[in-house]
Amino acid sequence: MKNSALGRRIIACPYYVWAAIFIIVPLIMMVYYSITNPVGEFTIDNFLSLGKYSKAFLLSITYAVISTIITFLIAYPLSYAMTKLKISSQRMILMMVIFPMWMNFLIRTYSWISILANTGIINNFLVSLGFEPLKLINTPGAIILGMVYDFLPYMVLPIYTAMSKIDTSLLEASDDLGCNGWQKLKKVIFPLTLPGVVSGITMVFVPSVSTFYISQKLGGNKTMLIGDAIEYLFNIGPDHYNVASTLSLVLMVLILISMAIMNRFTDETDEGVII
């Protein structure tokens, strides 16, 4: 019997080796590149040059925070409205919300250019009605729209899942105890969906803060987000790998910190519920 347990433990070994080589070593490589110069000598210059990119960092964080908030404000009522429907319609709408994710996100983003361009669909329509065309493409608004559009399903999915699991008798109980609609939302529904909200927020924030395609296409070339900076540096050649690694490292640390904060948020409320 002992032998079989041992055997079962051993079959994970190929994976451990894989994870060590392709998950841990790459991160060590990233750290190594970020503290050396192109010739391989130790240096902290890469970190000193980060100041040049502070604007890109700030802009990335701002856009990601705004689009995460908007996505949440759209997804939360949507999930709530969905749970009020028949089960079969709920399933169908969920499918329809997820379905665009199966389409290449580059093309989904690009289609927005057709809609927003200076001579695009919206502006053609406005001009034909006799209005002045609007400046829609290559604006911060267009970038945020792209982020909200591309990552909305990631927010709906966990929130809807959490909301559909709420026991309806809890809602009835809160009615009986005299809660009005707002109190019911604040004291019953929201705390129960909080884990879903937290995972939705992380799933939208991480790709938004690190994107480099959406900003290039919908923001024109004048907005440099941190993802753009990293991609640009890697493309101009091996001499710039070091600074690019430093930027990636800082981005990773930034994401880890924000995730830690978010997770703490749910842990504390869990304890609160137990008490």
């Binding site: 070593v25 490589m29 992380t202 990293i230 890697f234 990773m252 994401i255």
Partner: peptide, 19 residues
């Protein structure tokens, strides 16, 4: 880690290893 990390970070760290 690969699930939580931003794709760009995963991609770059692997590329550095390969290169």
């Amino acid at each position: 880690i690969p699930m939580m990390n931003a794709d760009i970070v995963t991609g770059i760290s692997l590329m550095l290893l390969f290169v």
